[in-house]
């Protein structure tokens, strides 16, 4: 049975290898940032994080989730910094003591996209008028339905438009991230609300096009917060705060502004005057 034993030992050793900390992990300081799929999938982090690391040596690990889930991750203490876009929820997060302080960082805007044929004739209308037209026509509308920042913004827009789509046969709640929702919308020839950053970097547009944009109510503010070390002692407060400080510094703001896809700027820094 010696050979069996040896096989087991080999397997055990290999398993242990998997659990052994990598040398690189101990050499550089890393923080975990809970953020949204829209920021991660737009490629913004891929652009700015190397700049931050070059400056401070701190490695940032981004977990991309919906805003609701990202805030929950912060509450549980599983992230050091939360970087999301749902101002009201963020303020609540800080008020309840889970975050130290909220800083506005940047904004982009939402757009309503839909089939080029535009059955509801929503093109060029304001957000409220456009949604009303969609509801009146009963044109298919795909909702994130995942409690994300975008989903919350969408619900607020429906409310402002004075319409209640909930339970309507043309209103599809997908329960998916932004990308999958756009994939589905392209297939369903549905209208949907998306942030501009995800839209610009999205590749499977099919027949979809931007129909409603530029309305003040479509404004999408991002905020960043350090998770409160008094709630979770293991939070890397110093490194986390360094990231927050860098994002709202001139250097960080310039890095955000310089991120472009096909010459188009995706995010607009507004740490000084943002909400």
């Amino acid at each position: 049975m010696d050979i069996t034993k040896r096989l087991f030992l080999l397997a055990a050793a290999f398993a242990a290898l998997g659990f052994a900390p990598k040398a690189a992990d101990t050499a550089t300081e890393t923080i975990v940032v809970a953020s949204t799929t829209s920021t991660e999938q737009s490629g913004l982090f891929g652009h700015i994080l190397p700049l931050f690391k070059a400056k401070t040596g701190i490695e940032v690990k981004v977990v991309a989730q919906g805003t609701g889930q990202a805030l929950d991750t912060g509450k549980r203490g599983d992230a050091d910094v939360v970087f999301v876009h749902a101002a009201a929820d963020e303020k609540k997060f800080v008020d309840e003591g889970f975050g130290v302080r909220r800083f506005p960082v940047m904004y982009n805007d939402f757009v309503i996209v839909g089939p080029k044929s535009d059955p509801a004739s929503a093109k060029g209308l304001s957000a409220a008028e456009g949604l009303k037209a969609i509801a009146a026509k009963g044109a298919t509308f795909a909702s994130r339905g995942d409690n994300s920042g975008t989903h919350k913004a969408e619900l607020a827009l429906w409310k402002a438009a004075g319409a209640d789509p909930k339970g309507q046969p043309w209103y599809r709640e997908l329960g998916s991230g932004m990308g999958p929702t756009l994939n589905a919308s392209a297939q369903l020839a549905a209208y949907t609300l998306t942030d501009r950053g995800t839209w610009i970097s999205f590749k499977n547009r099919g027949d979809l096009a931007i129909l409603v944009e530029g309305d003040k109510t479509l404004f999408n503010q991002y905020g960043v917060m350090l998770v409160n070390p008094q709630k979770h002692a293991h939070v890397k407060a110093k490194a986390g705060q360094a990231f927050v400080d860098w994002l709202i510094s001139d250097e960080g703001q310039a890095a955000i502004a310089s991120y472009k896809i096909s010459g188009e700027q995706l995010f607009f820094p507004n740490a000084k005057d943002g909400a």
């Binding site: 999938q41 990308g179 970097s201 999205f202 499977n204």
Partner: peptide
Amino acid sequence: ALETSKGDL
């Protein structure tokens, strides 16, 4: 899964 949600099929 990520590339699928980015629409880069």
